[in-house]
Computed example of a mutant assay.
Amino acid sequence: MNIKRLGRPAVVAVAAALVLSSCAANEGTAPAGDAPTETATALSGTLNAAGASSQGSAQETWTASFQTANPDVTINYDPTGSGAGRESFFAGGAAFAGSDSYLKDEELAGEFAMCAPGTTAVDLPVYISPIAVIFNIEGVTELNLDATTLAQIFKGDITVWNDPAIVALNPDATLPATNITAVHRSDDSGTTKNFADYLNQVAPDVWTEKPADTFPFQTGEGAQGTSGVVSAVTTGVGTIGYADASRAGDLGVAKIKVGDEFVQYTAEAAAAVVAESPMVEGRAANDLAISLNRKTTDPTHYPLVLVSYAIVCTDYADAKVGELVKSYVGFMASDEGQKEAAASAGAAPLSAELQTKVADVIASIK
């Protein structure tokens, strides 16, 4: 198992001692988007990365495949959450960060310890997944929610399961008079930011707070990481939470209202929203941050979706670090890597157009 719960000081210490070596077996290296092969390159060393826990299942698969093809490489991905991953990357404790939210303008204007002086970092989408609204309510197996009601639940305005607003959306269900425990992320989380962005776009009169990695209200119950939210919902009574769909397990999953229908998540429905969303304005051409449009009324779409990024340097201070990042992140975004994430985590593969854009940027990493 190479997904490790390292403390941030430990990550920084390990990364400070990062030693990478590579040699061309055939006088060249594989293209960035290709799956890694020992005949194309011979890599060795340790690569430390940290960030989004949503990527956890996919990272387990990617790590295993990459290390099988490159047995002298060790990949350590620490799923501490998007916020902690970005901080570790800024400080030089991670060679790249996994993040469910792209870099803010003020973050882009800062310095990145791993990057060559005078250069910056970019956001590369590598993982697309629905966010599941998970619940555990005795006697209830199906649940319909619209954005307004969901926002009221997590804001603390609706506090019992048989509230008239929930009953109206679920006329065939027997909803108990149980208190609602709404479980949110206690750590800075890109999943929280995506969840809040959906509510802010679709139910702005209720969810008035600007989307951020930090949950904005002093309500409900906080839990650390995706696994913490899933555990709290599983073991609690009358609980509801939000998590990457790959971690929903056997919990109940609510349908959300899109247009006039209640929609169950699928990878394809989530990918459709991403495909129709524009890039964030004002960014460099090689920064592929996506501005998700969640206001669709098309029931073939699932707007409660996250795009998770690999945040990488365009030019690494240590070229050997850059070479290993280029190879590993290139594998994550490749056809093979995307298929493996789909199989292991139910992720939606990048579209052909987006995959080409990502591969072009990865090919330029130094």
Rank of each mutant, 00 (worst) to 15 (best):
G118Q: 05
A232Q: 11
G28Y: 10
T356M: 10
A132Y: 06
A113E: 09
K320Q: 13
D318C: 06
G236S: 12
I311T: 13
G238P: 06
E209P: 03
G337Q: 04
D100I: 05
G282L: 08
A50C: 12
F154D: 00
G51K: 01
R247G: 07
S101E: 12
V167E: 15
A271G: 10
V133N: 02
T174P: 08
V361M: 07
L169C: 08
P299S: 11
A223R: 02
I158S: 03
A243T: 15
A40K: 11
F331A: 02
L6E: 05
G252E: 01
T266Y: 09
D157S: 14
V305N: 01
G45H: 00
L47R: 04
D72T: 05
E142R: 14
N136A: 03
Y328S: 03
Q338P: 00
S88C: 00
V229Q: 00
P176W: 09
P204L: 12
V229P: 04
G346F: 00
A177G: 14
A284V: 11
A49G: 08
D205A: 15
S21H: 14
T181N: 12
V14A: 14
T80D: 08
A267K: 01
P278M: 10
A58K: 00
A69Y: 03
A64V: 07
G156A: 04
L354T: 08
C115N: 07
A275T: 12
L47E: 02
G7A: 14
V19A: 14
I180W: 01
F135W: 10
S186R: 11
F154I: 05
F96W: 04
A40I: 11
N293V: 15
K155S: 10
T239H: 05
F262M: 11
D105L: 12
P71N: 08
E281C: 10
A173D: 09
A13L: 15
T39D: 15
G236T: 11
M279C: 08
P171G: 02
S54N: 13
Q338M: 00
I240Q: 06
K4R: 14
F96K: 01
L43S: 05
Q338L: 01
G92H: 06
E276G: 12
Q224E: 12
E107W: 04
G118T: 03
V258P: 01
W207V: 01
A272C: 08
T74I: 12
I128K: 01
P130E: 08
G45A: 05
A333Q: 01
R86C: 00
F90D: 09
K155N: 10
Y242L: 07
F135L: 09
T174N: 13
Y316D: 00
V273E: 04
G236L: 07
T29C: 13
A177T: 11
A333W: 04
G346Q: 01
A177V: 06
Q264E: 15
S186E: 14
A342D: 01
V183K: 02
V73N: 00
G85W: 07
D188P: 14
S291W: 06
W62T: 03
V273K: 03
G337A: 10
D213A: 14
P130I: 06
L103S: 10
Y302E: 02
P164H: 09
D123Y: 00
N48H: 14
M114K: 09
H301V: 11
D244R: 00
T296L: 06
V133R: 02
S44W: 02
I131S: 04
A310Q: 05
A132H: 06
A25Y: 12
L306C: 10
S22E: 11
H184L: 02
T149S: 13
V361F: 05
L43K: 04
R86V: 15
A182H: 04
